[in-house]
């Protein structure tokens, strides 16, 4: 009985040490040479735990692709219509490209500056409620990031790893969820360049005026 009590912790400890060693071996085997400052932080690897993790919530678009019209409603809000409401009846000008002059009448509010794409590079001419990939595969609107990823592979890769696009919520998903945006939350798909911003906040800490007492 006594021997059993002593043995159990020893076995557990040995198993723990072994697994730590194994994990360290596995992680160090494939590691690239690191500079001194990184090596120090990584010398004490934690064992990846099996605590269940919260999900990452990604704000995906729902509904159908819509376009802003030049109309406003009685509340002053821009009226949007789904692409299909017109284009189910008549074909779009598939020859039109981003670099061309402003689009036709109904799309006049639309800035289209996205490489040398045409509308139907992403929109599906067979069903304007959906999108399509370069090979013609139909995808749903909520899978728009697949479409982006075709050209923007590095960004998509980084997004997948959590390095692009930012997040809110918890860094530690054993404690709570994370919220991520989709590509088109930050980048207008028709003009994806991140917009210019005006800084609203500047330090005023007695900065360049050291003369007046008490200011």
């Amino acid at each position: 009985m006594m021997r059993g009590r002593v043995l159990i912790p020893i076995v557990v400890l040995a198993a723990l040490l072994l697994s730590i060693g194994l994990v360290r071996f596995m992680t160090s085997a494939g590691a690239s040479p690191r500079s001194e400052f990184l090596a120090a932080t990584m010398s004490t690897e934690a064992v990846p735990d099996e605590t269940p993790r919260w999900l990452v919530e990604i704000s995906l678009p729902d509904g159908r692709p819509r376009v802003v019209t030049d109309r406003v409603d009685s509340m002053g809000r821009a009226v949007t219509v789904s692409c299909a409401s017109c284009h189910s009846n008549f074909d779009a000008n598939t020859a039109r490209r981003s670099s061309d002059e402003p689009p036709m009448a109904f799309h006049q509010g639309l800035t289209f500056q996205h490489g040398n794409l045409s509308c139907v590079t992403c929109h599906n001419p067979d069903d304007y409620n959906a999108l399509r990939l370069a090979d013609g595969t139909r995808i749903e609107y909520r899978d728009v990031m697949l479409s982006c990823a075709q050209c923007h592979a590095p960004q998509a890769r980084d997004y997948e790893r959590g390095l692009h696009g930012g997040m809110t919520g918890f860094w530690d998903r054993t404690k709570g969820p994370q919220k991520r945006k989709s590509c088109i939350d930050c980048h207008d798909p028709h003009a994806p360049k991140f917009p210019s911003m005006t800084p609203t906040f500047k330090p005023l800490d007695r900065f360049l005026e050291p003369t007046g007492p008490g200011d």
Partner: peptide
């Protein structure tokens, strides 16, 4: 604050 010292100096 009544002195002229700052976070910089």
């Amino acid at each position: 604050i009544v002195t002229n010292m700052t976070d910089h100096v």
